[in-house]
Nucleic acid binder design. Structure first.
Length: 424
DNA sequence: TCTGGGGTCCTAGGACCC
DNA sequence: TCTGGGGTCCTAGGACCC
């Protein structure tokens, strides 16, 4: 059976989200910063044209940004997450088979869907998303996900294509032409290291990888690289994942806005992250038994300290307080006095479904369902009102360590009191 | 002063077992 | 010269993605 994948990708997603509610910044350079206002993670077309790089630390380019009048936003995940859901809901109108690949990308399966003449369907998808959500998107259509990615990239950068490139409509020679003009590092699945390796062997373009010796690719790049090469040849190896697999690990960590040096403060931050992680665990309908805690003073400078400790709950659980208790015990083992910490975090793993979770009644380590019920009750209150309407006291109240977000826009779609006002 | 956060998959090698 | 062989499980490390 032949597949037709459409990759729908939001253009400069975070910037586009900010512009929906700040239309004055349309056609003007805009960037969005990572957590803690650390570095640039989204740039408008105009900002890219100014030579601002992806991932560039904010403090390094702050002056350039000011000189060019670039509008700066801190990242506002409440807003981006909400708009992302709206985009996905819109896309569901166009195909029952959809894979949410990331916050700003989705694959649609278009098999058996009448696309009309002249890629009419793809343009209809694009126009509808724009009209309903305000977000501009591009579409790449192909017989494999890897080729759809390449088509999408081209659709985004070649203005004459109007945001859509469908390579199922192209002949072999034209496709090869496209692949010849695609740099090897722009192929999905080829990162910095493999690109360097391949270039050393004169494989500089997507086309060269397509034509490379399969067993050589497998030997040096494992089956992962081999799959990429096959997908470039039009053989679909990566299928559409409709239902997201349950997570195998849940990480919650954040750099501090201000360095933390006392165990009390460190435990507050840790307890806050553990709360977030166990919320996510419950949302997935899962329980877990392994916990890792890590702290670091930052990786810059030779006095850097990093340490990590792991432990287990007596039985799989989804109860926040159990995770907090064990995490604090682990923290005490790795916390060194007199250091100035930049970051801590927790990793929850050994995750299983809550239904089938094992219990051992005789060892006394059966799951404490009362505690889990309490956690769930807290979830529903916090969902109805606002995060941390109820929380464990160990999370602290002052939270001097919370991340910096100096340029934050409002939570305009998720908070009544921050709704934008339209003037008559 | 100031460099994000959250994930996945694959392989090699050691421990352990019969 | 020679030190069994084959299987599974687990972990660390390396690669990638957004």
């Amino acid at each position: 059976m032949k597949n037709i994948f459409a990759l729908v990708d939001c253009n400069n997603f975070y910037v586009s989200c900010e512009r929906v509610f700040a239309p004055a910044f349309e056609n003007r350079p805009v960037v969005v910063l990572s957590n803690n206002d650390g570095c640039i993670i989204s740039r408008s077309k105009e900002a890219k044209a100014l030579g601002i790089k992806m991932g560039e630390p904010f403090f390094k380019c702050e002056r350039t940004l000011k000189e060019h009048g670039v509008k700066v936003f801190s990242s506002n995940y409440a807003l981006y997450g909400d708009i992302s859901r709206r985009v996905i809901d819109t896309l569901r109108q166009f195909s029952p088979d959809i894979e949410i690949y990331s916050i700003d990308e989705a694959f649609l399966l278009l098999d058996g869907i009448d696309q009309g003449p002249d890629r009419g369907y793809a343009h209809l998808i694009r126009d509808t998303v724009k009209k309903w959500t305000g977000i501009p998107v591009s579409l790449g259509i192909a017989g494999t996900k890897t080729l759809a990615k390449i088509a999408n990239e081209r659709a985004k950068h070649d203005a004459s294509l109007n945001g859509v490139l469908d390579i199922t409509q192209m002949d072999g020679a034209t496709i090869d032409e496209l692949l010849r003009s695609t740099d090897i590092e722009d192929v999905w699945g080829i990162g910095f290291r493999w690109a360097n390796f391949l270039r050393k062997h004169r494989i500089d373009t997507a086309y060269a990888l397509k034509k490379a010796d399969t067993s050589w690719v497998r030997r040096h790049m494992t089956v992962v690289g081999e799959r990429t090469a096959m997908e470039l040849n039009g053989i679909s190896c990566l299928s559409l994942e409709k239902a997201p697999a349950p997570k195998k690990q849940i990480v919650s960590s954040r750099s501090f806005g201000k360095p933390v040096s006392t165990l009390t403060e460190m435990n507050e931050a840790l307890s806050y992250y553990v709360t977030r992680a166990s919320e996510r665990l419950r949302r997935e309908g899962s329980v877990a038994s392994a916990v890792q805690v890590f702290i670091t003073t930052g990786s810059f400078g030779k006095d850097a300290y990093f340490n990590m400790a792991s432990g287990r709950l007596p039985a799989p659980s989804a109860d926040t307080s159990s995770f907090i208790r064990i995490s604090k015990a682990l923290m005490e083992g790795i916390f060194r006095k007199g250091l100035s910490y930049k970051k801590c975090g927790v990793i929850i793993s050994d995750i299983t479904s809550a239904q089938g979770a094992e219990t051992d009644l005789f060892a006394g380590n059966y799951r404490n369902s009362k505690k889990e019920d309490l956690s769930r009750a807290m979830d529903s209150i916090n969902k109805k009102w606002e995060r941390d309407t109820v929380s464990f006291a160990s999370n602290g109240r002052e939270r001097k360590w919370v991340m910096r977000r100096g340029f934050l826009s409002g939570r305009v779609t998720t908070r009544w009191d921050e709704l934008p006002v339209v003037k008559a």
